[in-house]
Simulated assay, not measured.
Amino acid sequence: MATMPPDRHAPSHPPLRPIGTRRVVRRLLTLVAAVAVGAGLLAAPAHAAPPSVDEIDAQIDKQWEQLEPTIESYNKVRAQLKVNQKKSADLEKKMVPLELESALAMNKVGDIAAHYYMSGPSQEIGALLVSTKPGTLAEQLVILDRLAQQQRKQVESVLAIRDKYNAQKQKLDTLIAAQIKQRDELAAKKKHIDAEMTRLKGMLPKSSVRVDGCPKIDGVIAAAAQTAIRTACSKVGSWYVWGATGPNTFDCSGLTQFAYKAAGIYLTHFTGAQWNEGKAVSRAEARPGDLVFFYSDLHHVGLYLGNGLMVHAPRTGQPVQVAQISYQPVAGFRRPY
């Protein structure tokens, strides 16, 4: 088949010229890169701003609410230990003459035993004196019946003295055992509290300290309350140290104890005891100088100033200061005078 010749009258098109390939590729890469960077910015996590002083304080306050009962529990055990140590010392003093009296009585029994050495029941008397079994009373009476009336009275006296001495010694031994247990509990609590204190102090910025002075208090106030308020307010700015009772550092019950000690009123260094050492007053009857307690377990206390204010030692990292009582749940008021 013959080939058709080209149509000389067909429209003439200029040849296609390639657009700069390299330039297009560069633009595409630039566009892809820009999209990728934008997507990365959207996906990357934003860096959180560091917590503010108020946020740190709020966090510490929340953790302190859990720690302060442990501190007051420590104060309770320490107060009990102090009482028991005094009882122990008093018992030891009482036992000195009692021990001497017991020794002299035993010498008398020795004379009786010597008298009966050749013909009497010296061995029975010895067994009578050293036996401490509760079931031997009947046997003791039988032996006593064998003795003459005079010797029997002497032996009865010795038994009474010995039993009294042993009873007192048993009390003392029980107290000492309790003291050892309390001492070990204190050591464990102190270790835990110290560790928590170190952790909390590491969170505290210096700028978190805020101290306001005590306001002027008008009205008729009892002399003891005036002294307590004046003493506590003079310590505004003093630092909180757990277990401290002054004169330069305090915990909450240590401050109230220190304030009323200046007024001649002794309070135990433990919130639970201070609650029972004052008479109850209603919130409506509360007046400056009363103690105000917080939380159902009474683990915090302050000195009421009136008008919803108190002076207190709040927690580690904060000094003695004036604050609103409404910032914690109020458990009640007590008047210690």
Rank of each mutant, 00 (worst) to 15 (best):
H13D: 08
H13R: 13
R17I: 14
G20E: 14
R27G: 09
L28T: 08
T30N: 02
T30V: 07
A36N: 02
G38K: 00
G40D: 00
G40S: 15
L42N: 01
K62H: 13
K62W: 02
Q63D: 14
E65A: 12
T70Y: 02
E72H: 14
E72A: 06
Y74H: 06
Q80W: 02
A89V: 07
D90N: 15
E92C: 04
E99L: 12
L100P: 00
L104P: 02
N107F: 03
Y116F: 11
I125E: 07
E139R: 00
A148T: 09
Q149V: 15
R152P: 12
K169Q: 13
K169W: 01
T174A: 15
T174I: 02
A178T: 13
K181L: 09
H192M: 07
I193G: 12
A195F: 04
E196C: 05
M197K: 02
G202N: 08
L204K: 07
S207E: 15
S207N: 09
D212A: 10
I217R: 08
A222F: 05
Q226L: 05
A232K: 09
K235M: 15
D251I: 02
D251M: 03
G254I: 13
L255R: 00
G264R: 02
T268L: 07
Q274Y: 04
N276C: 00
G278T: 08
G278A: 10
K279A: 05
A284K: 13
R287T: 14
L291G: 03
L298Q: 06
H312Y: 14
H312Q: 15
Q318G: 01
A331D: 04
